[in-house]
Design a protein around this nucleic acid. Structure first.
Lengths: 203, 203
DNA sequence: CTTAATTTTCATATTTTTTTGAAAATTCTG
DNA sequence: CAGAATTTTCAAAAAAATATGAAAATTAAG
């Protein structure tokens, strides 16, 4: 018997519930998967997360395979990746040798985790690279300025644009830091506080 | 002669400048393209935007093709898409029949445009779909509560989770609206004001 | 209206991303 | 430690996303 979801005997968490509940779960999973691919997250990754979030309780690999109709390799790889992102956690169920996975249930915490990871993996490296890029024309600008070089103006405005972009990304970086910072995560609804702050000026 | 960038006779805006400037431009374009694909934007789309942003002046389709080494079809389609997003604009140069394109130079404006479009295209439909999804189990919940149904608890917690997610997305939606709103865009550095507000609480 | 320049379209090709599944590695269990 | 259950790996396959380029459509100019 090939090791695929179709033939698996593991319980499919989308079975054994009322048809409305099942339909709602499937719809949510589809939605979340779609949204993921809009934002550069592999569909299956988003779908597994959606499944674990909406089912609420820990599931093992076979259940995930059965619920989403995906292969063991795919499930294994994607689950691991989700664990690495800190979006789901491994759970050990007493009396069962299989590993279980469960999703963070606090949506604001989830948001903060994703923000932290994307900042670390994408924004920080981008900022560093942008600064390296800025350095390419730093000395050139000085040397051209002394002569009355025809390229000087182009160099000036190029640097201004690059600085504009760097300042912007640095600001995004700083804001992310604020949203991620422990003070935001330890006490209270946290993310909501920040949101409220932002919305104050609506008046 | 095939209609490709390699054989094009149009001026490549990455030529005819000092080697530092050229290198800086190419590096920036690569970076921005990479960042784009991290966030679900086709690499070429991000690269064209990067090119127009960093060169600063309007370029025609042939120049874009030459600079990035892409086909006419690709350039045409992607430029159009960027115009539809409101990220670049068409420019007509007197005495030249060709169309030129130029990128918004204010990074905060660019940010607001992208936010507006992603909200319109992705967040708003998502929210609507999530609410539809919520409706699937709205009546069910009521009818099951009356009997002492074993599914009632599952339904309850499912609805709670879905509501949590909906509230979150609604909040994101509201914040986006604030950042996009005319009051943010008409007077002053705008985006910066909001950022400052966010960072106040750092103390 | 005709002609030539320019832009758009879209079937096909290419590239990139994602998935599969069986073998290998690992981890429990007795 | 042996054996079985479980998880991971990764080469190959499939699917999805992007790009090409030549033909068709459009647009400006004479």
């Amino acid at each position: 018997m090939p090791d695929t979801a179709a033939q698996s005997t593991a319980g499919n968490p989308l079975d054994g519930v009322t048809s409305e509940l099942r339909r709602a779960r499937e719809q949510f999973i589809r939605l979340w998967g779609q949204m993921g691919s809009n934002w550069g997250v592999p569909r299956t990754m988003a779908e597994i997360h959606a499944l674990l979030y909406i089912v609420g309780e820990p599931l093992n690999t076979d259940s995930v395979m059965a619920a989403l109709g995906i292969s063991r390799g795919n499930a294994s790889t994607t689950l691991r990746s989700l664990v690495e992102w800190g979006i789901i956690s491994r759970i050990h169920v007493r009396g069962d040798r299989k590993e279980y996975f469960q999703a963070e249930q606090d949506v604001w915490k989830l948001f903060r985790v994703i923000l932290r990871e994307r900042k670390k993996r994408e924004v920080d490296p981008l900022l560093e690279s942008l600064r390296d890029c800025r350095d390419v024309t730093r000395d050139a600008s000085a040397s051209h300025k002394r002569k009355i070089d025809p390229q000087a103006a182009a160099l000036e405005s190029h640097n201004a644009r690059l600085d504009g972009m760097i300042d912007f990304v640095a600001m995004i970086d700083l804001i992310s830091q604020q949203l991620i910072s422990p003070s935001s995560s330890e006490k209270g609804p946290s993310g909501l506080e920040i949101a409220a702050k932002l919305l104050e000026q609506a008046s």
